[in-house]
Design a protein around this nucleic acid. Structure first.
Length: 669
RNA sequence: GCCGACCUGGCGCAAUUGGUAGCGCAUCGCACUUGUAAUGCGAGGGUUAGGGGUUCGAGUCCCCUGGUCGGCUCCA
């Protein structure tokens, strides 16, 4: 007598299996940690029914990694509750490269606690506990989890329709499940957590590719009015080797950190005397910055931009008109109160005037536009400024020169007629991408931030939003780049495209933004006379390529790891004589290079030549030129590069041509 | 802003249970004149972020302020 069978589709192939079969029957490969049944992730222990379409989920797949990390988070939580029995559980989702879990504990965790927790986790993992899924309901779960106030809150939220955010790992609408950790030896459930799963079959599959990385406070449910919980971060990988590779990547990122390189290469600093988030650029950083700015100016001139300047402080009424004071006052430095006059009795005779440091340049540019009557013939009007702005960023968010309180935007505002939005956007996007490529960033994708339907905060007529959004979409698609939608991410005054660039080690940075604005032209009552004599309102496009010069500087520093291509390098050439008697020969050649615009030095210090080579290599100078008696005899010079390679006996004319050519073509060497 | 950790000569680090600041690099001086990542010798430099407190005595303990780092929140 044959056992009854059901038909399944397993990884695309039809298979017959006995009734009641689970994923364990289907997949013998140890790398399979879960399965996708009709598109839904499930535990391997889930029972399959006739007609199910089943696909294996391996540990190395994106879903598999999430499951591994989420299961590791559960083990962490169990370890915390074993070591700190009074702790209460928050949430514990997988994140990029790892996981975290939030806990309410009496004392914040310290690094020694992390060590102890890792040890306890290893013990739990090796004990091979099984993850067992169990359905429950609100009422029963509330009873079971009476000691876990945060979990109770999540159960309550689930019944409502609130946005659960990252808590969606714990509960999902319509069902409620608990995962029991079953210790096989003890034959009992040793821990449990409210969770929608799925999980690894057992803890042993986590292996040794995990580590706890840091602790930090985090607001419960991400709201700064809520209590702060202790968040433990960890990373988890299918193998120890992959963990090690990940850690090496982090070390590489640390080596490239622009704050570290900025000090090492003597580029900029943040003197405590000036204040948090306010940098000074040293001569070497100043050169890089100047070269960046000069090239940008040159390209803007060629693309029809006009250069304007505006002051750093202004009376409050400008930002009242623009709306900034109403919306973003807390992001601005507090006002300077000037010109108050009092009489003998102390009564105010003349009202003080509030002046603000500017957090944005756009209102000034609007005033320039409005300074005279404009014709359609004046459009598009492209006003460009390296405008230094000041924003009172919260102290905790400052980060070197990429997030500072004073910075310089390469800011332009384009005033365009509605019918030419498309052509203008197209040329702006191409201009942006082209220029970024010249600075050495080549790997881009775009993000399109659009309006959230039905949200009343967005200003401007629906039809123009639709038209503008479609236009942005078309322009973005025409670029051929990957386009990631960001619904609801638009500013209240218009949709935007942002250019994201991936750097040399694959990190993405938001670079340029191109933003449509239907609001400021309205607020400043900007208009132009159309060809038919009627008054019309221009649309404004905000765009910044670098975002901020400082931030872009920081990104380039990390992208190049301080090894700037010759055109950006603060010192391009250092000449090292073998001995004093060879100095003049190199000095003459250096003069020749200098006259051709090369930033060149001759090192005639008292050091050994070996030491000089070491020093200038560490300073990441692109070309070290060496000459001794042999080179002089041949009217030549020897190249040494930053990677240690060398080309000896290059004739002077050839050497010069090579250096000039590589600088001019902005290549890396 | 919130939570935690941290702050020693220009830079990187050291100073047993609180006992009176040390090293390397850099700097300066002298000697050496050298073919591809550190020549040797000598000298100067800090009252330990700033302020207050505890103590016979504080870099070490406590408080306040400033700053840095890691997160959270935020980034018009």
């Amino acid at each position: 007598m044959s056992t009854p069978e059901i038909e399944l589709k397993v990884d695309g192939e039809t298979r017959l299996v006995e009734v009641g079969a689970t994923g364990f029957k289907l997949f013998s490969d140890k790398a399979v940690v879960a399965m996708k049944v009709n598109g839904t992730l499930k535990d391997l222990a889930a029972e399959l029914v006739h007609g199910d379409d089943v696909n294996a989920v391996t540990v190395s797949s994106p879903d598999g990694l999430d499951i591994l990390r989420h299961s590791t988070a559960h083990v962490l939580a169990q370890a915390v509750q074993n070591l700190f029995p009074e702790s209460k559980l928050g949430i514990g989702p997988p994140i990029k490269d790892g996981f975290y879990y939030d806990f309410d504990v009496a004392e914040p965790f310290n690094p020694e606690d992390l060590k102890a927790l890792e040890k306890e986790m290893t013990r739990i993992i090796q004990s091979g506990q099984r993850f067992l899924r169990r359905d429950t309901n609100d009422e029963d779960a509330a009873k079971e989890l009476a000691g876990e106030p945060y979990k109770l809150e999540l159960i309550g939220l689930k019944s409502g329709n609130s946005d659960l955010g990252e808590a969606s790992a714990e509960v999902a609408a319509g069902e409620l499940t608990i995962y029991d950790n079953f210790d096989v030896k003890a034959e009992s459930v040793v821990w449990k957590d409210l969770c929608r799963g799925p999980h690894l079959p057992n803890t042993r599959m986590i292996g040794s590719g995990f580590a706890l990385t840091r602790v930090a406070a985090a607001y419960w449910r991400g709201n700064e009015n809520n209590k702060q919980l202790q968040r433990v971060y960890g990373t988890a990988w299918p193998s120890k080797e992959e963990l090690r590779a990940h850690q090496e990547q982090l070390e590489e990122a640390a080596r490239r950190d622009h704050r570290k390189l900025g000090a090492e290469l003597d580029l900029f600093s943040f003197p405590e005397e000036i204040g948090s988030g306010l940098a000074v650029f040293h001569p070497k950083g100043g050169i890089i910055r100047k070269v960046m700015e000069d090239y940008s100016r040159e390209r803007h001139v060629a693309s029809g931009y006009e250069f304007v300047y505006s002051p750093h402080v202004t009376k409050s009424n400008l930002f009242e008109t623009s709306g900034h004071l109403e919306w973003y006052a807390e992001g601005m430095f507090p006002p300077l109160q000037l010109d108050e006059e009092r009489d003998d009795k102390g009564n105010i005779r003349r009202q003080a005037q509030d002046y603000y440091l500017k957090p944005m340049n756009c209102p000034f540019h609007c005033l320039i536009y409005r300074s005279q009557g404009r014709s359609y013939r004046d459009l598009p009007m492209r006003l460009f400024e390296f405008g230094t702005v000041y924003r009172y960023e919260k102290s905790g968010v400052l980060h070197g020169i990429t997030r500072a309180r004073g910075f310089t935007q390469d800011d332009a505002h384009l005033y365009v007629a509605r019918e030419s939005i498309k052509s203008e956007l197209t040329s702006v996007l191409n201009f942006v991408l082209d220029l970024l490529r010249d600075y050495g960033l080549t790997d881009f994708y775009l993000e399109l931030s659009t309006k959230e339907e039905g949200n009343p905060k967005f200003v401007g007529a629906d039809e123009i939003w639709v038209e503008a959004t479609n236009t942005l979409q078309e322009v973005a698609e025409a670029s051929g780049l990957e386009l990631v939608p960001d619904p609801g991410g638009a500013a209240f005054y218009g949709p935007k495209i942002s250019v994201q660039a991936r750097d040399a080690i694959g990190r993405s940075w938001q670079m340029s933004t191109i933003q449509l604005d239907f609001n400021l032209p309205e607020r400043f009552d900007l208009e132009y006379t159309a060809s038919d004599g009627t008054k019309k309102r221009p649309v404004m496009i905000h765009r910044a390529l670098f975002g901020s010069v400082e931030r872009f500087f920081g990104v380039l520093t990390e992208h190049y790891a301080g090894v700037f291509p010759p055109w950006l390098a603060p010192i391009q050439v250092v000449a090292v004589p073998i001995a004093d008697e060879h100095y003049q020969y190199l000095a003459d050649f250096a003069d020749d290079l200098r006259n051709s615009g090369v930033r060149v030095q001759v090192d005639n210090s008292d050091e050994r030549m070996q030491k000089k080579i070491r020093n200038h290599t560490l300073a990441k100078v692109p070309y070290i030129l060496i000459a001794g008696a042999e080179d002089i005899a041949n009217q030549a010079v020897s190249f040494r590069f930053r990677d240690g390679s060398q080309i000896n006996g290059v004739p002077l004319a050839e050497a010069k041509a090579r250096i000039l050519n590589e600088i001019a073509s902005r290549v890396q060497v």
